[in-house]
C-alpha cells in the first residue's frame, strides 16, 4: 500500500477497517463488506484528488512512491542503455541519461532521479543535480542531435544542489549553457514534468518544443518553503506560498508555460503507475509524431517563439507612457 499523505486521512480510516476485516475469517458477508469499503475508499480518494489545494499537489508531486524517470523507462521504453559521465568531472547519479527504443524508434532519454528508499536517495543525492549532471545531459542531447534522434526529458527535482562543490564547479554556468544550447538543438525535444519542477534545477534540462506536465506535478521558481521563509519570514507559511506562486499544472497551462496536462489516475500516479504510464505514453507518441516532420528551421523558430512569448505584453506586462518620453514600439 502506498504511503498516505495527511489529507488522505479519511481514506486511511477506511483502509484500516478493510485491513481489520480481511484479517478475520472470510465469509461472503465480510467479503461483500470489504468490496463495499474498497469502492468507497476509491471514490473518496478520487473525490479528494479532484479538489487538491496547491500545497497538497506539492505533497503528491514529492510522494516517495511517485513513478520516477526510471519507472517510466521500464514501463514504456525498451533496450534502455544508460550513458554515464560528463567527460569532465564525474557521473552525476541525480540525472540519468541514455538511449532507448520508444515504440520502435531510437530516442535519447534524460531525467532526474530522486531515489525511493534511504539508500537510493543518498545514491541519487535526493535528485539534487550537480554541474556534472547538467553537463552530462547536454552531452547526451548533443549525441541525439548528431544521430538525429528526438529527446525525451523527465523533470523531477527539488532544485540544483545548493552546496560548495556545485558552486565551485559552476552549476550556474552549466544550467545557463543548457538553456542556450537546448534552444538550438536541432532535434525535437519533449519535456514531461513528472514530479517536482524545482526552479533552475528543473529548467536546466527543460527547454524544448513541448513542455507537458502530469496532473499533480508542480513547477516553481522557488520551493514554497523557501519563498515563505523569504517573503513571509516564516517557512511554515508554505501553504500560502504554494497558493501565491501558482505552481500547479492548471496554473501553468493558463500562464502559457506548459502545453498540455497529462491526466493521472484517481489518487495520483503513485496509486497506479501503469495507468499513469499509459497516459504518458499516449501523449508522448502524439507530440513526437507532430514534431517529427518539421524541418529544422521551423522546429527551432517555433521553439524560440514558444519561450519568447512567455510573459507576453497584455498578459504579463503593459507599456505605459513614461513622463518625459521613452520609446514605444511603432
Amino acid at each position: 500500500m502506498a504511503e498516505l499523505l495527511d489529507f488522505e486521512e479519511p481514506v486511511a480510516v477506511l483502509l484500516k477497517e478493510i485491513e481489520a476485516l480481511s484479517l478475520m475469517p472470510q465469509t461472503p458477508e465480510r467479503q461483500a463488506a470489504i468490496a463495499q469499503l474498497e469502492a468507497r475508499a476509491a471514490e473518496l480518494r478520487a473525490e479528494i484528488y479532484r479538489n487538491l489545494k496547491p500545497w497538497q499537489r506539492v505533497q503528491v508531486a514529492r510522494h516517495p512512491n511517485r513513478p520516477s524517470m526510471l519507472d517510466y523507462v521500464e514501463l514504456l521504453f525498451t533496450e534502455f542503455t544508460e550513458i554515464h559521465g560528463d567527460r569532465r568531472f564525474a557521473d552525476d547519479k541525480a540525472i540519468v541519461t541514455g538511449f532507448a527504443f520508444f515504440h520502435g524508434e531510437p530516442v535519447a532519454v534524460v531525467g532526474h532521479q530522486k531515489g525511493r528508499d534511504t539508500k537510493s536517495k543518498i545514491y541519487r543525492n535526493f535528485g539534487y543535480a550537480k554541474p556534472e549532471g547538467y553537463r552530462k545531459a547536454l552531452r547526451v542531447m548533443k549525441l541525439a542531435e548528431k544521430f538525429n534522434r528526438p529527446v525525451i526529458v523527465f523533470v523531477d527535482t527539488p532544485a540544483a544542489y545548493p552546496g560548495i562543490e556545485s558552486e565551485e564547479r559552476g552549476v550556474a554556468e552549466a544550467i545557463a549553457l543548457n538553456l542556450r544550447e537546448m534552444a538550438l538543438l536541432e532535434v525535437p525535444i519533449v519535456i514531461l514534468v513528472s514530479g517536482e519542477g524545482g526552479s533552475g534545477g528543473a529548467l536546466g534540462i527543460a527547454v524544448g518544443d513541448r513542455v507537458l506536465m502530469q496532473e499533480f506535478s508542480v513547477y516553481s521558481v522557488i520551493p514554497p518553503e523557501g519563498c515563505a521563509a523569504i517573503l513571509w519570514r516564516d517557512a511554515a507559511r508554505k501553504v500560502e506560498a504554494a497558493e501565491a506562486l501558482k505552481v500547479t499544472a492548471p496554473d501553468l497551462l493558463e500562464l502559457g508555460i506548459i502545453d498540455e496536462i497529462v491526466p493521472e489516475p484517481p489518487g495520483g500516479a503513485h496509486q497506479d503507475p501503469k495507468a499513469a504510464a499509459a497516459r504518458v505514453d499516449e501523449v508522448l507518441v502524439r507530440h513526437l509524431r507532430e514534431l517529427r516532420d518539421l524541418d529544422v528551421p521551423t522546429l527551432l523558430d517555433r521553439r524560440y517563439a514558444k519561450f519568447r512569448s512567455m510573459g507576453r505584453e497584455g498578459q504579463a506586462f503593459t507599456t505605459v507612457t513614461v513622463a518625459g518620453g521613452g520609446d514605444q514600439a511603432g
Binding site: 545557463a176 516553481s220 521558481v221 506562486l245 508555460i257
Partner: peptide
Amino acid sequence: GALSLMQM
C-alpha cells in the same frame, strides 16, 4: 512565479 523562471 514560474514566468520569472522562464525569462532565463
